[in-house]
Write a protein that binds this DNA or RNA. Structure first.
Length: 262
DNA sequence: ATGGTTGCTTAGCAA
């Protein structure tokens, strides 16, 4: 049975990351890739080098910030930008598509900026909206993957220091409660299913030598519905992608599944 | 240590 590799990566600017992203694609050849923070409006999306490599691409972006995309080696069906067909979201943070017989969702959950700020309230509301939307439009019985930058570390083992992070953005009790409600839709945290050990991170701040000090957070996730989780054979965080020239501040998370969905 | 760095909209915001 062939393997199906599903990756998620907050690239922090697809155009700034293009050389590095293409080298990564050429090395790993993942079947499906979810991207966040493409930071490019659709008319300027760098589609050609991806198409040359055989990828179908769906994308939903805007000028300057946000922006999500889904790449696939198979045809992409029923792409949906935002939450409802025909409803234009001012912030381009979610894109769904069916490919390789999986409903794939690429999500960029709001950062939240500062506890108590308007953006923090927006983050909590967005998480709740996502959870409600899943309940209304999807079922845990279908093969589904929610992938992206969740901007929340789910548990103490997902932050470099509980003492430093408790009550901070990314590890605030309200965020973790909202995330727990989302998980209770029926998700399996695919990385944690294979790796119980603490302090394995997917993001490190560019500033103050955070990567060198391993002061990171595990905020990038691949969450799967039970029928897809049943096919998983592994999941890894590609820490080495934080090294070298012009890294994103996030690294890819890659899950591998038995490709037996048809 | 309220700094530090990066990408975008090249100045200031978002992260």
């Amino acid at each position: 049975m062939s393997a199906l590799r599903l990756a998620t990566w907050n690239v922090n600017g697809i155009r700034a990351r293009m050389e590095r992203f293409l080298a990564w694609l050429d090395h790993h050849h993942p079947e499906i890739v979810c991207l966040q923070e493409t930071k490019v409006e659709d008319s300027l999306f760098p589609l050609e080098p991806l198409a040359q490599r055989g990828y179908q691409v769906a994308f939903s972006g805007q000028k300057g910030f946000n922006g999500v995309a889904i790449l696939s080696t198979a045809p992409i069906h029923q792409p949906l930008a935002g939450f409802e067909p025909g409803v234009d979201e001012p912030e381009k943070r979610i894109l769904s598509a069916t490919t390789h017989n999986i409903r794939v969702i690429s999500a960029y959950i709001p950062n939240g900026q500062a506890v108590g700020s308007d953006k923090f309230a927006f983050k909590l509301a967005w998480l709740a909206r996502l959870t409600d939307w899943l309940g209304q439009h999807h079922t845990p019985a279908e093969p589904l993957a929610l992938c992206g930058d969740f901007n929340v570390a789910p548990a103490p083992e997902d932050v470099y220091s509980v003492e430093a992070m408790e009550g901070e953005v990314g590890f605030h009790p309200q965020e973790r409660k909202a995330l727990e409600r989302l998980r209770n839709w029926g998700f399996v945290d695919q990385f944690r299913a294979f790796h119980p050990e603490p302090h394995l991170f997917s993001w490190w701040d560019y500033r103050a030598g955070s990567f060198q000090k391993n002061k990171g957070l595990r905020i990038d996730h691949i969450w799967t519905s039970p029928p897809l989780a049943a096919l998983a054979t592994g999941c890894d965080i590609q820490r080495q992608e934080r090294e070298g020239e012009k890294p994103s501040d996030h690294v890819p998370v890659v899950a591998v599944f038995e490709n037996s969905l048809g």
